[in-house]
Amino acid sequence: MSHNSSHAQSWETEHEHPTDDMRLLLLFSHDRNREILSKKLTPYYDVSTSTDTLDDGSFDLCILDEGSLKTHRRTLVAHKHAEEPVFLPYLLVARTDVDQLDTSVLELVDEIITVPILLEELGPRLKSLLRNRRLAQELSERDELEQMAAIISHDLRNPLNVARGNLELGRETQSDEYLQTTEDALERMNSLIEDLLSFAKQEYSNLNVDLVSLGSIASRSWDLVETGDAELAVELPRDVFLMADSSRLQKLFANLYRNAYEHNDDHLTVAVGLLEDGFYVADDGVGIPEEDRLTVFERGYSTNDDGTGFGLPIVKRVADAHSWSVVITESESGGAKFDVTGVELLDQSGTPLGE
């Protein structure tokens, strides 16, 4: 790492105005390099060198070397997915030329700087990456607010009008028959508000991961939602486990169950089973047309008048936060089937199945 006086002066000029509201995470397998860079950056940024910061995702830019990238790759990928569409920059400190790096490395990192690190080169890169992140955050927040406002004004207006109209009719006629319709409209509004709050909290990136039983979570989640006369068939061995945030995984199952119930009649069977690298939730209902299978993951999109349009986006967000993938296919009976893949299935001791 270079430390001559002209470089130092350039660095100080570049960082005349501190940006300590932005946190940098330094992940280096080489302790001495981490200490030197941390000492240089600390006066200007909120710098962390703790893996706890990596685990909870409370950073705005990560500077790392190839050893740390290899060690923490899965978690880094998970945070990238969880932050989308907001830009979360990774800057790699490499000891080799760019053309010698593996393509998988190039796909994950946003900038590469080779050693020895020249401070007058690092400074502008950090400022540029953080500026782009801040801009992405501002655009995302504005877009999020605009979409939320549009969804709220559209989806709440109809049940609100229904409730008002039926209350008025109830007063005029002194009849209780209009109260049930009013109650249904208010329940619809309550469901929408709960889903909006759940989605707006964006709580799914900070996971509390532990070894959990897939079958137990799948069964327990069924009791969290209204399913009428529908039946659940959990076709899972009892000894299948996975590393997951149990409360988030419960939300994933609950929203898939509710989606199946809301889009079909009561005479429905929902099945949960294993895939080679994950699990599925399938039903024997009417299915989802192929042309709608990507659209349904968008916020506020629903083909059901009683749906809030946030159930499946929540499912996708939970999957992304765990570095899983979720796709819609067709079940054997022609219904909808949600395949959750990229999941490492384990036994009760935490050993991958089959080993």
Rank of each mutant, 00 (worst) to 15 (best):
S6H: 08
A8P: 04
Q9L: 14
S10K: 04
W11M: 03
H15S: 11
H17A: 14
H17W: 05
M22W: 08
M22R: 01
L26Y: 00
L27W: 07
H30N: 15
R32H: 11
N33H: 11
R34W: 02
L41T: 00
T51D: 15
D56F: 04
S58A: 13
L61E: 07
C62Q: 03
R73C: 10
R73I: 12
Y90A: 10
A94R: 03
T96C: 07
Q100P: 00
S104N: 14
S104W: 13
L106T: 02
V109L: 08
V109G: 10
I117C: 14
L122D: 06
K127S: 13
R133V: 01
L135E: 08
A136S: 08
S140H: 11
Q147T: 06
A149T: 12
I151K: 12
I151M: 15
P159C: 06
P159A: 11
V162K: 09
L167A: 14
E172N: 08
Q174G: 11
D176P: 15
L179I: 10
T181G: 07
E183I: 08
A185S: 11
L186I: 14
E187D: 12
R188Y: 10
E194R: 09
E194D: 13
L196A: 04
S198W: 02
A200N: 10
K201M: 08
E203Y: 01
N206M: 12
L207V: 08
V209I: 13
V209E: 15
G215F: 00
W222G: 01
D223Y: 01
D229Q: 08
A233C: 10
L236C: 05
P237N: 09
S246A: 15
S246T: 09
Y257V: 09
R258I: 04
N259K: 07
L268M: 07
L275D: 06
G278I: 11
V281I: 08
D283W: 04
D292Y: 05
L294T: 03
T295I: 06
T303R: 12
D305H: 04
G309Y: 01
L312F: 11
P313Y: 07
I314M: 14
V315R: 07
V318M: 12
A319D: 10
D320K: 03
D320E: 10
V327A: 10
V327K: 12
I328W: 05
E330G: 03
S331Q: 12
G334H: 01
G335Y: 01
K337L: 15
F338K: 01
V340E: 15
G342T: 09
E344R: 03
L345D: 06
Q348P: 02
T351C: 04
P352Q: 04
P352Y: 01
G354P: 14
G354A: 02
